[in-house]
Design a protein around this nucleic acid. Structure first.
Lengths: 144, 144
DNA sequence: GCATTTCGTTGAGAAAGTCAATGATTGAAT
DNA sequence: ATTCAATCATTGACTTTCTCAACGAAATGC
């Protein structure tokens, strides 16, 4: 019969396990900054030139809007982001990184990259080059 | 500044989002079989020629042993797998798929593949060929 | 104007992840 | 041989994450 499990050839299973490895390493690296991969992602997106609304954060991170509320609550309470009213649409709240949030983001980013690189070092250069394109196709199935 | 977020170039974020897409599609496809991606993975591994112990399931799926207990409890209650004693080590319990479990696994596998294929169809042939090797390197950082 | 939709928020519950402790059993070290 | 430490499955508690329904405020469509 099959001595090796078919599951080991299933991209979805491999994807899930690779993500579990990545998330665990990421959370460990971010713990020193009081962040997790989720809150880090929100903080990173809020640093964009055109700051996102909570709805845009939810869509981009594939989170429920109620999850974004909790994440922004936490970051706002720590002074890392602000909720700004949008003059053009008073329903929405724009989440923007604060002056204090920037250095926190950069420090977290450094530690995060340091934790990720040993994982990616196991890839060949061509694999490393192909990875982002592949993942983008899988992560955004219907054109963001 | 950067009009496009740096997060969109972060393989870890893309991995997380791609996994979220995959898990959601997988769970939707498996719902008709009363399974989720987790329980499906346990069922699939228990179909191997040499049935795994619960510890081996936990290691392979990167789950806490207590999670495996609950998953096997459920599958066993539904008659899809059995817990067999291992004569060579009476501490361990070997999880083996049952005669009733096999057709259930195969039916679930068909629906799961059908749900995954449209996602993978977005990849070029060379990307599709490269994906398993890349994910294996990321999913098993220290040689399974 | 009026109905419908969207946004953020609250709240509740299911699913998943994490950790400590325990009894039974094994393997190792004398 | 007998103790000692380690392993396995299990239970239980706790946190985090996911999912869904409802609601007030505001925008959009007609």
């Amino acid at each position: 019969m099959d001595t090796r499990s078919r599951l080991d050839d299933d991209p979805s299973f491999l994807l899930a396990r690779a993500n579990a490895v990545s998330v665990q390493a990421g959370n460990a690296a971010l713990a020193a900054h009081g962040l997790r991969v989720r809150s880090y992602a929100v903080l990173a997106l809020s640093a964009a030139a055109d700051a996102p609304t909570q709805r845009e954060l939810a869509d981009h991170l594939r989170l429920d809007p109620s999850q974004v509320v909790a994440l922004v609550d936490d970051l706002e309470a720590r002074g890392l982001v602000t909720r700004e009213p949008d003059p053009s649409d008073r329903r929405t709240r724009v989440v923007r990184i604060t002056r204090a949030g920037r250095p926190a983001l950069e420090a977290a980013e450094r530690d995060l990259r340091a934790a990720e690189s040993p994982l990616h070092d196991r890839l060949t250069p061509s694999q490393r080059a192909a990875l982002p394109g592949i993942l983008r196709a899988l992560a955004f199935p219907v054109e963001p």
